[in-house]
Design a protein around this nucleic acid. Structure first.
Lengths: 350, 350
DNA sequence: TTTAGCACTCCATCAGTGCGAGTGCTAGCA
DNA sequence: TGCTAGCACTCGCACTGATGGAGTGCTAAA
């Protein structure tokens, strides 16, 4: 009865079979089924003893006296960590993925990836927008609006276009704005936004006498334009409706909490942010995420990188009872392919 | 027994009371309740006779033999068209609306309007992005990318920034691109996109010999840039999760169809497009919309205008059983306030 | 034309029942 | 000591029938 002992081979084997069976059937699995399903040639009675042990350890749980056993979160966790035999992607799926992500017509690779994740898993797919640590300023442009407001357009990293409206103290003529933009482009183009911000601050504090009025105006506007970069994180979520098909999420309250979290975005972003740190595939099972809305869900994610810099996270959201052995490699591969697709100069990473 | 006759005053009165009662309670309403609720001083028995007539006319319906009556779609329709006594907005709500929409901090009035619609009605709010019939080109800019691609940035209508990547036949130097942009800005700035497209086409067909190479390049690029303007219609939908609270939408299949329609967007856009034509408040009740996903929903919409031009639609989506008498004026006012908020030079329209 | 009365229908609820699945426990066996 | 067979027991589920309430349709009378 040494309770704190490491589980022996046999118990592990049984737990594995149980989880697999439960994932495929969705029914609590009883000792009888388990006895036939495992290759251990044990009688149901023996199995029941093992099950009692597993239950003591909190790995499985009985919904009621005369039902079979169901894995708990810890049970799933142990399964995923140590017992899982991942199934490699079918080559058909792989080529499909590859095609969809590399021949991207719409210029919306992120959306395409999200849709692929959702469609192929029949669950929800999520991809954060890529966010580079260092962002280079490529080009800046000012356009006058009414009431002393100025429309700032700037391009970063080759082709990302941002725009923003700033309020200036004095009213500038189009020509003045043009000059300012020219000046800023000439000195800051190619620099990182961080560097630009720092430099702008320094200019304004230190040696204002060195600059002429035009330069000063330009730098002041730059300060407004790059002031605090809101840089909202965001993600593309697709296939939410797929989640409505799962019986474990059929409860309207649960579902509502979940969908509310999706549209608030905040919690989801926090969660995905955590996944950004980890490398490789990161998994949250049920309550592990710490967010109530996700209590009955699992989240399988992987970060994706462009030229060795982690820039985002992508993943799949579904019920805790999901086919981890297929989802995990799938998320993994999709992350790699997306990274490759975002990198203009690279070929396939596989 | 003249069946095709116009309903008499009394029947109308009873239908009105029935609908009002059903909207507030959600229970089929019986003759007894109706007899007390209406000021007609009729006995339940008489009411039952009237109900039988209304049922023959398809205005009410009995879920089963011994239940009360429930309005049908036609019943609601008649109610909304002829019987409704609209309740003016509470002044508290009105000031709230007004505040939220005029002091728009985020630059996202559309989103704010959608959220207001959802929050104040506890249903779903939807607002289409404003779309002007004539769009004026304000400014255009080209930036070179790798592989002969060019990033086109153009600004329309004061401050709307669009960007697009085009593939050019030959590779241009930054200076050439700058020249082209200057040329296009000088001749097309201030013109409508439609006019620009037409003019570009004409230039290319007619008198190429008149132009030098630089101008020709510029015009060719303009053609690519303004080629087919995708101009996707889109909308901002909020408060979808509010719909999960309604018992008439508690059915998972219905709910799923509805949410799928929301994320496909297509059907919703078609529906909203229809509302664009009508002026004043437009209402679809249940199956009237023609889209299965909306079978158990009603849609109350109004178009909104900027300087007398209809530019978009906004509305509320909820179960057929909604408080029309409050929702209708609310949608109406919100549309007017949004129009005003989008018009930079106008004051309040009220 | 309206009303009162009555028989009838249907639904919702509840308790009772039997069945099947699966367990825990115990005793016996290798 | 570990495994197994057997047995009693528990629980959930589906079905049944009884009961009461709500509301109707019809009829006959005012």
């Amino acid at each position: 009865m040494s309770e704190a002992q490491i589980l022996n081979e046999r118990s592990m084997q049984l737990l594995k079979t149980l989880v697999e069976r439960y994932i495929s059937d969705g029914q609590p699995v009883g000792s009888r089924v388990l006895s036939k399903d495992s290759d251990l040639n044990l009688s149901p009675a023996t199995i029941r003893n093992v099950m009692a042990d597993l239950e003591d350890l909190g790995l499985v749980h009985s919904p009621h006296t005369s039902a079979g056993r169901v894995p708990t979160v810890s049970g799933y966790r142990l399964f995923v960590n140590s017992l899982l035999t991942v199934k490699p992607l079918e080559s058909k799926e792989l080529t499909h993925l590859h095609q969809q992500l590399s021949h991207d017509e719409q210029g919306d690779v992120i959306g395409a990836a999200s849709r692929l994740l959702a469609d192929l898993t029949k669950m929800a797919g999520v991809v954060t927008l890529p966010k580079r640590e260092v962002v280079f300023l490529r080009h800046i442009e000012f356009l006058p609006l009414s009431h002393g407001r100025v429309l700032v357009i700037f391009v970063t990293n080759e082709q990302e276009v941002h725009n923003k409206i700033i309020h200036t103290a004095k009213v500038f003529s189009p020509a003045e704005l043009q000059q300012s933009a020219n000046y800023l482009n000439s000195i800051y183009s190619g620099h990182s936004l961080q560097a630009v911000r720092k430099s702008v601050l320094k200019e304004l504090q230190d040696d204002q006498e060195r600059m002429n009025q035009g330069m000063l105006d330009a730098v002041r506007m730059a300060q407004l334009a790059f002031g605090q970069d809101a840089a909202k994180e965001d993600y593309v979520l697709t296939g939410e409706t797929n989640l409505m098909g799962f019986s474990e999420l059929a409860d309207m309250d649960r579902l509502r909490k979940l969908f509310e979290a999706f549209s608030q975005k905040q919690d989801v972003i926090h969660l995905l942010d955590q996944c950004m740190q980890a490398d490789g595939v990161q998994i949250f099972i049920g309550e592990e995420s710490g967010y109530q809305a996700f209590d009955h869900c699992s989240l399988v994610t992987s970060s994706y990188s462009v030229s060795d810099e982690v820039v985002g996270v992508l993943g799949v959201i579904g019920p805790t009872r999901m086919a981890y052995e297929k989802i995990i490699p799938f998320v993994d591969v999709t992350a790699k392919l997306l990274g490759a697709a975002l990198n203009p100069k690279s070929a396939s990473p596989l």
